[in-house]
Simulated assay, not measured.
Amino acid sequence: MDKLSVVGIVLALMALIGGAILKGAGAGALLSPAAFTIVIIGTLAAIFVHTPTQTFVHGMKMAKWVFVPPRQQPEALIERIVGWSGTARKQGLLALEGSVEGESDPFIRKGLQMLVDGAEPDAIRNILEVELQTREHLDLQGAKVFEGMGIYAPTLGIIGAVMGLMAVLKNLADPSKLGHGIAAAFIATIYGIGSANLFFLPMAAKLKAVVAEQTRIREMLIEGLISISQGENPRNIESKLRGYLH
């Protein structure tokens, strides 16, 4: 669980609700079905048109990474790679076949299988890097779903405000409705700018950071597997891979 993300969401809600209360508007002033319809539903409509179905679905599946990111254990992975290296030097690459069968990560399993099959280092690098780049591209496109929502929401908030002001102008003859109408008009702006800057854009940035971390770990794995195929000393491999750590 990413506690910082949870705290951030809580603080964002507190900032909006607490700010409304402290300003004297009250928490209830933030409730507006019309603003919700224009901004939130409108943002979803825009992103539906903007994004291919597969990319949108993948982005929604990735949303949980903001709070529960995939577990990254680079230290443990380095120890495993060094262990595989030692086994390969003592017993040969075929001795790693048992590790392939017990590996749950498809990317790692594919790399180990190539080692066992005696693939050349260049072939291992080329095949795994293509898969790495494809996966990174797909994940980044998923993160951009939220980035796109963060771009559209403020504009739709302005549209909502303009529509609210249009309604106010129709009631200029009734001063008692002006104050409430103007306040309601600007709620849409709050929805648009608030959702973009407190939720959508931060979520996109967090997802991109998770994707970058995954890519770094996989690059480290590729380098380790190639070093094993080249018969490098386990200690040298460990020293090289630790350069990938922060």
Rank of each mutant, 00 (worst) to 15 (best):
M1S: 10
M1F: 12
M1R: 09
D2R: 05
D2V: 08
L4H: 08
L4I: 12
L4R: 12
S5M: 08
V6Y: 14
V7K: 02
I9M: 12
I9P: 00
V10K: 04
V10P: 03
L11K: 03
A12C: 15
M14I: 15
M14L: 15
M14H: 02
A15S: 13
A15Q: 07
L16S: 02
I17K: 05
G18Y: 09
G18V: 11
G19N: 06
A20I: 07
I21R: 01
I21E: 03
I21Q: 06
L22A: 10
K23I: 08
G24F: 07
G24T: 05
A25I: 04
A25R: 10
G26M: 09
A27I: 10
A27H: 06
G28W: 05
G28I: 11
A29P: 08
L30S: 05
L31H: 11
A34N: 11
F36Y: 14
T37D: 06
T37N: 07
I38Q: 00
I38G: 00
I38V: 13
V39Y: 01
I41E: 07
I41G: 02
I41W: 07
G42S: 04
T43Y: 01
L44W: 05
L44A: 05
A46G: 07
A46H: 05
A46T: 14
I47S: 04
I47L: 12
F48N: 07
V49M: 15
Q54L: 12
Q54V: 13
V57A: 12
G59L: 02
G59C: 07
G59E: 01
M60A: 11
M60R: 03
K61V: 08
K61A: 12
K61N: 13
M62S: 00
M62Y: 01
A63K: 04
K64G: 04
K64R: 11
W65K: 02
W65C: 03
W65D: 00
F67L: 13
F67W: 12
P70W: 10
P70Y: 07
P70F: 10
Q72D: 11
Q72S: 13
P74K: 04
P74W: 00
P74D: 08
V82G: 01
G83H: 10
G83W: 08
G83A: 11
G83E: 09
G83V: 06
W84Q: 01
S85T: 09
S85C: 14
G86H: 04
T87F: 00
R89A: 02
R89F: 02
K90P: 01
K90Y: 09
K90D: 06
K90M: 10
